[in-house]
């Protein structure tokens, strides 16, 4: 599904990703862990198509096509979903308009008929239950006045509406209390399917108690320095990131 080969990316002349290699197959859950500043969020943003980054080397193939050639909206419509670390508040854009436009852009791309207002509201109600989303939130402007937890919940709610092939969860656990963490994780798990893959980007192991990964990768100084099964997350929790740092000559 996703193949990253020797990927280098820099921002304002500073190299952040220094040769990433990663393959994600359908249905797999990959966790990417690493200390602050290792390049985790950069990787997530590069995959989603954020234009602040310059790709200096390497390639990313998604479903057999060159991903890096595509605009963020094309990537989204072809099935890549980024759950933002910091979802943006957009005053003046009502949630319902935003969600309906988004869903219909995806449908048009798939050659499906656009949903009418009524049909969309029905779909929305269905998906709201999945992540315990309230109408008091969907009646507002996009993320406006949402708490940290509500913003993250809203991301997973959008994921449920858009049903991506590959979901990238960027620090979805940051700023969440344990209850909110559970709700969000339950939402992600409910959306699990043999076709849908997930990349969980996280600093801490605690989210992985709820979203169990098939693989854990450790990103350090722009490179994946270790890959193993879920036990790696526990090791990391126990030994801390200093263990990785010392192993890599720091």
């Amino acid at each position: 599904m996703l193949k990253i080969k020797d990927l280098y990316a820099s921002v304002e002349g500073m190299e952040i990703l220094k040769g990433i290699n990663l393959e994600v197959k359908p249905g797999e859950v990959h966790a990417i862990m690493g200390p602050n500043g290792s390049g985790k969020s950069t990787l997530a943003n590069v995959l989603a198509g954020k234009e602040d980054y310059e790709i200096t080397n390497g390639e990313v193939v998604f479903e057999g096509e060159d991903l890096l050639e595509k605009s963020p909206e094309e990537r989204a419509k072809e099935g890549i979903f980024l759950s933002f670390q910091y979802p943006v508040e957009i005053p003046g854009v009502p949630m319902v308009n935003f969600l309906k436009t988004s869903v219909n852009e995806h449908r048009k791309h798939k050659g499906l008929k656009e949903l009418t207002a009524g049909e969309f509201l029905k779909l929305m109600r269905e998906k709201m239950d999945l992540v315990d989303m309230h109408t008091k939130l969907t009646n507002r402007m996009v993320n406006e006045g949402f708490s940290g937890g509500e913003k993250k919940k809203n991301e997973i709610f959008q994921m449920a509406l858009l049903e991506p092939k590959l979901a990238i969860l960027d620090e979805t656990d940051s700023g969440l209390d344990i209850d909110a963490l559970k709700t969000v994780a339950n939402g992600v798990n409910a959306l699990k399917s043999p076709e849908r893959s997930t990349i969980v980007v996280t600093h801490y192991q605690r989210l992985l108690d709820y979203i169990v990964p098939d693989f854990v990768h450790i990103l350090y100084q722009g490179k994946i320095v270790k890959t193993a099964g879920k036990e790696l997350a526990f090791q990391l929790e126990e030994k801390g990131y200093d263990w990785i740092k010392s192993e890599n000559g720091n």
């Binding site: 198509g49 605009s71 989204a76 979802p87 943006v88």
Partner: peptide, 14 residues
């Protein structure tokens, strides 16, 4: 905000 909307499949001009 523009990137957020685009990352949800909404064309840049839209």
């Amino acid at each position: 905000a523009l990137f957020y909307l685009r990352a949800r499949g909404i064309q840049e001009d839209k």
